[in-house]
Design a protein around this nucleic acid. Structure first.
Length: 704
RNA sequence: GGGCGAUUAGCUCAGUUGGCUAGAGCAGUUCGUUUACACCGAAAAGGUCGGGGGUUCAAGUCCCUCAUCGCCCACCA
């Protein structure tokens, strides 16, 4: 063969990558139904649906790369390999993003009809979804676009609603007044795990409340507090009886208060006495349920004080705090103020808004049985965690399940198939008749994404269910509670089988100094920019090397640059080998003959290749990639090629020269195949020129 | 308050079941453009693997302990 001209200049990724991706797409090989040969064994990974509200970030880059490596590997191993893409409507988060956009435009969702708002968000998301999919392609991901799924497409919506109906009929779902986390700014409830705590320095007040001194950080909720709680063993209050009543001078005049003795009171804390506000505190709510106490709302849904607050009514609760304290001060009821107190304030994880506990009717899923099922399955070994320490965290969480609030007061999502009429409830997809109106609430996003493996594979009756259970769930460790347990629960509940066998968590991508990437810090690396500057293959290598499962990984442009050099090294290896193949021919009578030394070189490579295969199969892609790098550069290029130069130049014997040719032929073929899952573009490009008699696209070549 | 993890070259990190003469990138030293590659090569330099103790023929790797840092969970009035 003659050396193709393209090897005369350094490898330029941008010149090849786009065409190569198009070539793969047109080949149809991303679709497992089109793969050549008999493939009995399936391999399936479901893409954790990126939120359709923005571009891909470095975390997605790692995520997609790791999954694509596995998919490409198993495809080359002769499996019916499916990497199934999709995107998530990401309900609350997307609506938040969209509302910010409205705000910038000087608009607001208030005053927009439900349908109008939904449609606007829909268009916004569809546009982003397109960008996002372009990004995924840019990363060389070999997923089957013909199976692309979106969580709000009609058939998914319908099937997700079916699950709700089934669970309702099975008694797994109830509607109940519960203390919920309310986001007053975005007007929706949140589940526990959508909130986070932040330590804030807040004055801690001690007030005189009849004969008691009570402590609080939230005076603004105390207007209607009529119950004092102390610990039954607290000797300071031994003289008082459970349910004893008192006349108390309080914020807006005298009230009648009742003492409750219950173990929830902490004797160590402050005076050991507290008053309760059941409407605006979960603990207090539980206590109120226990003693059947009345519930009274103090703060409205917008965060303003209600008429019970008297002169303070209509004021934002947190704003009124100081004025209330001042009034109490005037009345001589302030005993002490501790200005050094640190309080854990509960915030909305996504928006940072301080959540207000409120009482509201919501839909809940009973978690006890589902959690038990999930743990039992884990005990039986039906699924396992690649990084064991996550199993501990997971277990702990599953052992203490909290009922899951699945209703959200937002428009962007799957509407709950429940209907109300005069206090009656019917659950169905269709309108039950005259006078019924559908619950305006939508499902928590995780209710639908929890069913993602099922929905994408066409549960209940789709033919793709042959891919279920899938092989591995590879995702970010932050989803250990949010997503993973829910998929397992839904899988077990609906099909009796887990949705995946192995759970592989990758860590967060950090910047070069180990700091979390964030837009506000300006340290974000976009995978698309990296791919443009250094090439996708280089970026993929940088995402994988030294990135063991379960720990965070710092990423720098230097690291990506290093693998760009590696790509060029590979390019030049091909240049050298091909240029020594001038007279290479299959028909040569000595084709296939190697001397012992060269035989050994091939065997050494085969060992490395097998080692890499083992690493991929056992979820050590970081070691696999490093071994590949090391072998190609420091063994093949530095030693094997160097040792071949004399012979190839004809300075030894003709036998030796032919032996070297065949040895290089063998090893280069192996290197291209081994490297392909990691660096799909450059390997496929070099493979085009490989002097093989009969060959497929590298993407469907056999691994060994 | 409970749980988990980290501590390895100047910097950022790998090191799978104990077998290591402890590796990679970047930074830095010296030399080299003889046709695969300057997006390069060669040669060196850099580490008592956080401290202390233990198990073992053998410990960066397992156990105990201390120190520092980080993450997660929790109904901290």
């Amino acid at each position: 063969m003659n050396l193709p001209d393209k090897y005369l200049s350094p490898y330029d990724p941008t010149a090849y990558e786009k065409d190569l991706y198009t070539m793969w797409e047109e080949s149809g090989f991303f679709n497992p139904d089109n793969l050549p040969g008999d493939r009995d064994e399936t391999f399936c990974i479901i893409m954790p649906p990126p939120n359709a509200n923005g571009r891909l970030h470095a975390g997605h880059g790692t995520d997609m790369t790791l999954k694509d490596i596995m998919t490409r590997y198993h495809r080359m191993r002769g499996k019916k390999a499916l990497f199934l893409p999709g995107s998530d409507h990401a309900g609350f988060e997307t609506q938040g993003v969209f509302e910010k956009k409205l705000q910038k435009e000087g608009r607001s969702r208030f005053g927009m009809g439900r349908e109008e708002l939904y449609n606007e968000i829909y268009n916004f998301v569809m546009e982003n979804k397109g960008f996002m999919e372009d990004d995924v392609k840019r990363l060389g991901v070999s997923c089957d676009w013909s199976r692309n799924t979106f969580t709000l497409q009609p058939d998914v919506v319908s099937r997700v609603q079916d699950t709700f109906i089934k669970m309702y009929e099975d008694g797994m779902i109830y509607r109940g007044k519960r203390s919920i986390h309310w986001n007053p700014k975005f007007q929706t409830s949140l589940s526990d795990i959508e909130t986070k705590f932040e330590d804030r320095k807040t004055p801690f007040y001690y007030f005189q409340y009849g004969p008691f001194v009570i402590g609080t950080v939230r005076p603004e909720t105390k207007f209607a507090d009529k119950y004092i709680v102390v610990h039954p063993d607290d000797e300071r209050y031994a003289e008082y009886d459970h349910m004893q009543e008192f006349e108390v001078e309080w914020i807006n005049g005298p009230i009648k208060a009742t003492l409750i003795k219950d173990e929830v009171a902490d004797m160590e804390k402050g005076s050991g006495a507290m008053t309760i506000t059941p409407w605006h505190s979960q603990v207090d709510f539980d206590l109120a349920q226990k003693y059947d106490l009345p519930l009274e709302q103090i703060i409205d849904w917008d965060g303003k004080l209600l008429p019970v607050a008297g002169e303070f009514a209509g004021t934002k609760a947190h704003v009124a705090r100081e004025a209330i304290v001042e009034k109490l001060q005037e009345k001589g009821l302030v005993v002490e103020v501790d200005n050094d107190y640190t309080n854990a304030v509960r915030l909305c994880e996504r928006t940072g808004v301080v959540v207000e506990p409120q009482i509201k009717d919501q839909w809940f899923i009973k978690m006890d049985k589902l959690a038990a099922m999930t743990l039992e399955s884990l005990d039986k070994g039906e699924y396992k965690f690649v990084t064991e320490r996550y199993e501990k965290i997971f277990r702990h969480w599953m052992e203490n399940p909290i009922d899951w609030n699945i209703s959200r007061q937002i428009v962007w999502g799957i509407q709950i198939p429940a209907w109300f009429k005069d206090g009656e409830i019917k659950v169905s997809k269709e309108n039950p008749g005259e006078g019924w109106s559908q619950d305006p609430d939508t499902f928590d996003t995780w209710f639908s994404s929890g069913q993602w493996p099922l929905m994408t594979l066409g549960y209940p009756e789709g033919s793709d269910m042959e891919f279920y259970p899938t092989d591995v769930m590879e995702t970010g460790a932050d989803l250990v509670f949010k997503w993973v347990p829910r998929m397992i629960m839904f899988g077990l509940y609906l099909t009796g089988e887990v949705p995946f066998r192995d759970i592989y968590f990758h860590g967060m991508v950090l910047d070069s100094k180990g700091v979390k990437m964030s837009k506000s810090k300006g340290n974000v690396l976009s995978p698309i920019d990296l791919a443009e500057e250094f090439g996708t293959d280089a970026m993929r290598m940088a995402f994988v090397v030294a990135n063991p499962p379960g720990s965070d990984m710092p990423l720098s442009t230097d690291k990506v640059r290093a693998y760009k050099k590696f790509a060029n090294k590979l390019w030049n290896i091909a240049r050298f080998v091909y240029s020594s193949f001038e007279d290479f021919s299959y028909d040569h009578e000595d084709f296939g003959n190697m001397n012992a030394e060269d035989q050994l070189r091939v065997e050494k490579f085969n060992d490395v290749r097998d080692d890499i295969a083992k690493d991929i199969e056992q979820y050590r892609p970081h070691l696999a990639a490093e071994k590949l790098y090391h072998y190609v550069w420091h063994e093949f290029a530095d030693n094997v090629l160097e040792a071949s130069k004399n012979a190839l130049a004809g300075e030894t014997s003709e036998d030796d020269r032919l032996s070297k040719q065949f040895m290089l032929y063998q090893i280069l073929e192996g290197i291209l195949k081994t490297a392909h899952p990691f660096m799909p573009f450059i390997t496929e490009e070099i493979w085009k020129d490989f002097p093989n008699k009969e060959k497929n696209l590298l993407i469907v070549e056999s691994w060994n």
